[in-house]
């Protein structure tokens, strides 16, 4: 079966290229831990912005949390909001510059804890923004403390024996809450643990960007993610744990699309 055995160097030519780092993502090495889902989502954003050719027309809002340095990696206009206030800032930017694509990039500690009010009110007003919501069920940057989204029985540094519902209450499923609001147009929950999931998430974010220019309400893309450092697991172990434990609580799929 020995065919024309073209060596590796013959394959590695510009004309055979099928995938490379998107140019919107710059060369700064990302500060995220090895295996962090943030990197994949940054890469997807860069790909989408490049493919839609909107690099000059997109404004991102960075949160407080691990993704606070998102502006260092994506070569687009960026603002950085106070903790949890990204939807409020995005509201202002979108109202002043309605021709721009405006998105917020927030974690669960930012969006579902300190920023709950801003999130709910921005969605209720039906602001034409995109909210990218990274939900890993933990406060990653500050050392893995329990977040409102921490699922029952999940261990964190402030609940080392697992979250106890009678003591800490129930996990906050804020995306399901936002579905009920009149102001939201597109609400979806995705993940980035396999290549198929990454492709689906890319389509969802792309759709959200398109919808944000149609003036019919807020688009929210939740991405159920891992925090292997905070969860004290290996990257692949964290992915398996997420599939087994997070997906039953945070089910994947489109929740609202009108």
């Amino acid at each position: 079966m020995s065919q024309t055995n073209s060596s590796i160097n013959e394959i590695i030519k510009p004309e055979n290229l099928v995938y490379k780092k998107p140019s919107v993502l710059n060369d700064n090495p990302m500060h995220y831990c090895p295996g962090c889902s943030h990197g994949v989502v940054h890469k997807l954003l860069a790909e989408i912005i490049g493919e839609m050719d909107i690099q000059e027309d997109v404004i991102g809002i960075a949160p407080v949390g691990c993704a606070v340095f998102a502006y260092k990696y994506l070569d687009i206009d960026f603002q950085q909001a106070a903790h949890g206030r990204a939807p409020a800032l995005a509201t202002a930017i979108k109202r002043l510059m309605p021709e721009k694509y405006v998105f917020t990039y927030q974690g669960d500690g930012d969006l579902a804890a300190i920023g709950t009010s801003e999130t709910i009110h921005a969605c209720n007003r039906g602001e034409n923004i995109v909210i990218i919501y990274i939900n890993n069920g933990i406060y990653g940057m500050t050392g893995g403390q329990m977040a409102p989204t921490t699922i029952e029985g999940m261990k964190s540094s402030t609940c080392p024996f697992g979250r106890d519902i009678s003591l800490n209450g129930y996990p906050l499923n804020i995306t399901d809450l936002l579905v009920r609001l009149e102001g939201t147009r597109y609400v979806t929950r995705q993940s980035v643990h396999t290549s198929a999931a990454v492709r689906k998430t890319k389509k969802a974010i792309q759709k959200a960007f398109v919808y944000s220019m149609e003036g019919k309400g807020t688009s929210i893309v939740e991405i159920v993610s891992t925090c292997n450092s905070g969860w004290k697991m290996t990257p692949e172990g964290a992915n398996d744990w997420m599939v087994e434990n997070m997906f039953p609580v945070y089910s994947i799929g489109d929740l609202k699309d009108i």
Binding site: V18, Y32, S37, K43
Partner: peptide, 10 residues
């Protein structure tokens, strides 16, 4: 799946 976008494919 690469979080750091360090893979180029041909």
């Amino acid at each position: 799946v690469c979080p750091d976008a360090c893979i180029t494919v041909y």
